[in-house]
């Protein structure tokens, strides 16, 4: 088990490889569809301040407001692939050191991870209550009114947030590997068999 503290420098991230189990601590920012579009279409200095050296968490949380403070109730990862058109630009422009989500991402993001020294960490989808417990404090929120609760950029302080490195800064990609192996098996299963009349 490896520990990553945010903000992280390049050498800490370069030390991660596919398959590493990590616990992340420090301040990270949630961002999903509306936020990624916004971050690419704008050059937001406030966002840059919190994102530099930090990680983006693909998450649209359930948030309760209790006595004036926000509390994360349920906060698992959302599918990362939807941010593929934006992520490489976001990583480069804002100096992000990691993306946390689920399902993995595409070639452009993998390339940005390599050139910028960042990693993709996979959280377990649907592990929403346990992951919310690793959020110690909501430090702030950007674009809440405009984007709504799930899409807002929540600035959160986490302790020992569990994830697995599935895309690293050296070009390693577990998703491509599983996809390739399962495609081979699919090919075998689709081979014509007796009684299979085909088209």
């Amino acid at each position: 088990m490896k520990h990553i503290s945010l903000p992280a420098d390049e050498s800490a991230i370069r030390g991660l490889t596919v398959g590493d189990q990590v616990l992340v601590s420090g301040v990270m920012v949630t961002a999903r569809d509306a936020a990624h579009k916004y971050l690419v279409e704008n050059d937001d200095p406030d966002a840059k301040k919190v994102l530099a050296g930090s990680m983006i968490y693909h998450c649209g949380p359930v948030v309760a407001r209790e006595e004036g403070a926000y509390r994360f109730v349920s906060a698992g990862p959302t599918t990362s692939e939807r941010e593929e058109p934006y992520e490489a630009a976001v990583i480069r422009r804002y100096g992000v050191r990691g993306i946390i989500g689920k399902g993995g991402m595409g070639a452009r993001t993998l390339d940005a991870l390599k050139t910028s020294g960042a990693a993709y960490l996979h959280a377990v989808g649907g592990l929403a209550v346990l992951l919310a417990k690793s959020v110690e404090k909501v430090e702030g929120v950007m674009k809440l009114e405009e984007f709504g609760v799930p899409e807002a950029m929540w600035i959160i302080r986490v302790r020992d947030f569990p994830a697995v490195v599935t895309m690293d800064s050296h070009g390693g990609n577990l998703h491509a590997e599983i996809s390739r192996r399962s495609a081979e098996r699919l090919h075998d299963l689709l081979a014509p068999s007796p009684g299979d009349t085909g088209v």
């Binding site: 998450c59 649209g60 949380p61 359930v62 109730v73 349920s74 906060a75 698992g76 959302t78 377990v124 989808g125 649907g126 592990l127 929403a128 209550v129 346990l130 919310a132 417990k133 799930p150």
Partner: peptide, 24 residues
């Protein structure tokens, strides 16, 4: 490990009346 963590998450969700997954 992932499958066992899902059960642990479900148990915490039921105990605390919190959504099992944030995407309800």
């Amino acid at each position: 490990r992932v499958l066992l963590s899902l059960l642990e998450n479900a148990a915490a969700a039921a105990r605390e009346s919190s959504p099992i997954c944030q995407d309800t």
